[in-house]
Amino acid sequence: MSDFQLALTNTAGISSVMSFWVFVASNGLRGKKELLLKIASGVLIVGFLSLTIAIVARGVEAQRFPLSNLYESLLWFAWATMGGYLWIARAYGIKQLGWLASLTAATFFLYGSWLPSSQHEIQPLVPALVSYWRQIHVPPLIVSYAMLFLSGLAALLQLFAAGRRKTLAVAVTTIVLAVSAIGLGTFTEIAVHWLQLLFVGSSLVGVVVAFKLLNQFDASKVNAKLAETYDDVSYRCIAIGFPLLTIGIITGGLWANHAWGSYWSWDPKESMALVTWLGYAAYIHLRIHRDMKPEKLAVVAVVGLLLTLLTYLGFNSLGFGGLHSYGQFK
């Protein structure tokens, strides 16, 4: 990896951390709120642009499309999260998602930087990945994961604005536990069965409890207008992420058919993407029920976030095998 590329990537990583703190500070210092929000967004834009150039530079250096291992896909994910947030902020004029989006990007940068250096280096491709299909199949998926992630984050803010503080606390705890399972699975030798149990167990318990707590809320903390906006943002992100996920899965099938003669082979990662897809199909159909409470849909969007996380990172780190284990390095 060239110094130029490294410098740009680091700039992006540091920007995401900085903008996170400035977004947080903007909530503390009411008087300077507008100014701080502007600064935070500015810093995030700088990070986004440096990351864009870094990714392009990596492609030029490697002389191939720069999306072939876990590290590169994390860069793309962070890029799409930042870009997706900037787009939402512009379209909706909301800022509260900012600190969550920067936190997510920063976490993924950190995760990426902890990966062994072999992941950071530009490596030759295994035969199965040498194909133009790679750049058709993978980017829609990574961008869809980022959009679906943002939708889950917006759902958290919806729960906050709707006064569902207890549900929110449970949802956040569940996500933190799930992320921890993935972190432990990537960087420690703990038996994968325990981590699978941690991920799936905490998700199941968390989601059930979150649903149960939905009717406990503090009416004085309800900001109906804001809740409606975040509900809308969450849905919008899914409306963008879902077609991308669909395209990613289908082009994956086309590639597999082209390369191995079978568009579907029940490979674990394929299956998991199908699970996520069905989960969001269920969300969309729940939406069609006009009488579904937005808070319930918010919890469903959090379920979606957990499924997305499991599909994207859970597979390699929690020891599910299969064809798509190129990202694996242990």
Binding site: Q196, W266, P268, K269, S271, M272, L274, V275, L278, G279, A281, A282, H285, F320
Partner: peptide
């Protein structure tokens, strides 16, 4: 049924 299918496929992935 979508949810049940999703859970079934999840088990199949695991």
């Amino acid at each position: 049924f979508m949810s049940l299918t999703a859970i079934t496929v999840l088990i199949g992935a695991w």
